[in-house]
Write a protein that binds this DNA or RNA. Structure first.
Length: 261
DNA sequence: ATGGTGGCACCGCCA
């Protein structure tokens, strides 16, 4: 048996507001790497000290207000890249950390807002651009993880009401198709290795709905994807509802995967 | 119920 690697992804909806939840969670769960999305803070104001005090290095890219991503890790990465490698754009939605035995990319895919809006077109283009980056800069044969809020529920069992929600920007054929190209390239959903054909397990519950968790009004849109060399080494996956049930919730909650390297 | 509310940066936008 090699060493265990624990990876988590969590859309926090403001890293500063969520610190009282994030830091105790980090200290209890001690993932090797935690990917954060929607940090909603510009780099100069990122609460770095809270992470270093817990024994984590933290790297972040955000311009404040919206979006923003971060990677906290026990080990120092060999290299960190911000944004799409080709032009550095979208720097508040994409962050790459290279470690000795693997590379991890955290992403916050555009939500899309409405099907007939430019935001939805932009979302589809984002999927294509990410695929191009995978093709240009990575190999499905290398150990790669892609973690984050992908704003896509891939299957009917990933939403609480597939009939009503069909056509939503996170649950619609155009997005499924764009996402399928990532799978075709070689990214596999670690969650489905352990829960094939299992529904009712979600990573997002709109906090505007009362008692959404208790009523099961969720979506599974936060994913940990792995190329084959890491997918085959995955040993467990879970969704931790505790942060979502805390008094001041984000609407997302952490997804955790473990690997034996 | 096709709404709601929280977060940030301003007096609306985004989810």
């Amino acid at each position: 048996m090699g060493r265990e690697l624990k990876i988590a992804t969590y859309n926090v909806n403001s890293v500063r507001s969520r610190l009282p939840i994030i830091i105790p969670w980090l200290e209890t769960n001690r993932p090797d790497v935690l990917c954060l999305q929607e940090t909603k803070v510009r780099n100069e104001a990122f609460p770095q000290d809270a992470f270093t005090a817990s024994g984590y290095k933290v790297f972040f890219s955000g311009s404040g207000g919206y979006n923003g991503v971060a990677i906290a890790s026990c080990e120092e990465p060999q290299k960190v890249s911000i944004g799409f490698i080709d032009d550095g754009k979208e720097s508040d939605r994409l962050l790459i950390a290279h470690f000795e035995n693997f590379t991890i990319i955290t992403i916050y895919v555009p939500q899309g807002r409405e099907k007939d809006s430019p935001h939805f077109t932009y979302k589809l283009e984002w999927f294509t651009r990410f695929l191009k980056m995978l093709e240009d800069d990575f190999s499905p044969l290398e150990p790669l993880l892609v973690c984050g809020d992908m704003n896509v529920a891939p299957e009917a069992i990933d939403v609480h009401d597939p009939l009503r929600l069909r056509g939503h920007v996170c649950f619609t054929p155009e997005v499924w198709e764009a996402y399928a190209y990532w799978q075709d390239w070689g990214l596999k959903d670690v969650f489905r290795k352990f829960y094939p054909k299992v529904g009712g397990l979600y990573s997002f519950f709109d906090y505007r709905a009362i008692n959404a968790v208790e009523k099961g009004l969720g979506w599974r849109i936060d994913h940990i994807l792995a190329t084959e060399p890491l997918y085959e080494k995955a040993t467990a996956v879970s969704i931790d509802l505790e942060p979502r049930l805390a008094a001041k919730p984000s609407d997302h909650t952490p997804v955790i995967a473990t690997f034996t390297l």
